[in-house]
Simulated scan of single mutants.
Amino acid sequence: MRTSKTKSMIAAAVAVAGAAAFTAPAAQAGVTSCSAQGGKQEAGALIGAALGGLLGNSVSGHNRTTGTVVGAAVGAAAGSAVGCQMQHQDPAQRARYDREDRFATYVSGGYRLSSQIEPARFSRMGQLSVINRDFGLRAAPDFSSRYVGKLKGGERVDAMAHVRGTDWILVGRNGVGMGYVHEDYIRPDNARYAYGY
């Protein structure tokens, strides 16, 4: 009886060690790699493999080796997922991704513009405005240009500039032009105007 239990525990230890040894190279190879930097994913996979292997060994009945291996594999996958999530939630990682995800910009006519939109000739406006009704933000001051976003009715935006020779307005936020809105879809944000007029 003790010999059988000792053999099962040795088999469990070997399976857990094997799962742990497999997990680290797999993470480096990209099988369990996380898009956020850090070591929490690998640590989670190792801890999950160890706990899963021990749990699998204890509940598997007569075939403890299979239970240990299956438990270690499931534990490693769960630990890896939890570790990756923790890496993404790390404040330093979130700040880094916010910087990376921010759109590229360029300067044209004295305005900072999103790289998704085309330049134009502008006359400065610089006022807070409200979108009258839902409107697809355009890449150029033309209804046939592609969409680069959507604005909802009642949403406030910076009306940065009027596009010279057209009925289009450059709108943006935080000093960056994000796209063009036809003037029929936007109004100044002041008390003289009722919503939808």
Rank of each mutant, 00 (worst) to 15 (best):
A36Q: 05
G56N: 08
G53S: 06
G83H: 02
G18F: 01
A27T: 10
R102G: 07
Q41F: 05
S108R: 03
T65M: 15
S60Y: 12
S35E: 12
V31E: 02
Q41V: 13
P91M: 08
L54C: 13
D90F: 04
V31A: 05
T65P: 07
P91L: 08
H62F: 08
V70H: 06
T23I: 10
Q93S: 15
Q87D: 13
Y106H: 06
M86A: 13
L46P: 07
R64T: 14
A50N: 01
Q28P: 03
A78D: 02
V74H: 02
T68G: 15
G75I: 02
S33Y: 01
R96S: 07
S58F: 01
A81S: 11
A21N: 03
D90P: 08
A49I: 00
D90I: 01
Q87A: 09
K40G: 05
G38Y: 09
A36I: 04
K40E: 05
R99Y: 08
A26K: 01
G83Y: 06
G18S: 12
A19W: 07
L54M: 11
D98S: 08
S33W: 02
H88Y: 05
L54N: 05
Q85T: 08
G39S: 13
D101F: 11
H62A: 15
S80Y: 02
Q41M: 13
V59L: 15
V82G: 02
D101W: 13
M86T: 05
S60R: 14
G67T: 01
R64H: 11
A77T: 10
V107N: 15
P91F: 15
K40Y: 14
R64Q: 14
P91I: 01
K40F: 06
D98R: 09
V70D: 06
Q87V: 03
A50V: 08
S80D: 03
Q41N: 15
L54E: 03
G38C: 04
G44H: 07
R99D: 10
Q85A: 12
V107G: 11
A45S: 10
T32Q: 01
R99S: 09
A50F: 09
H62I: 12
L46E: 09
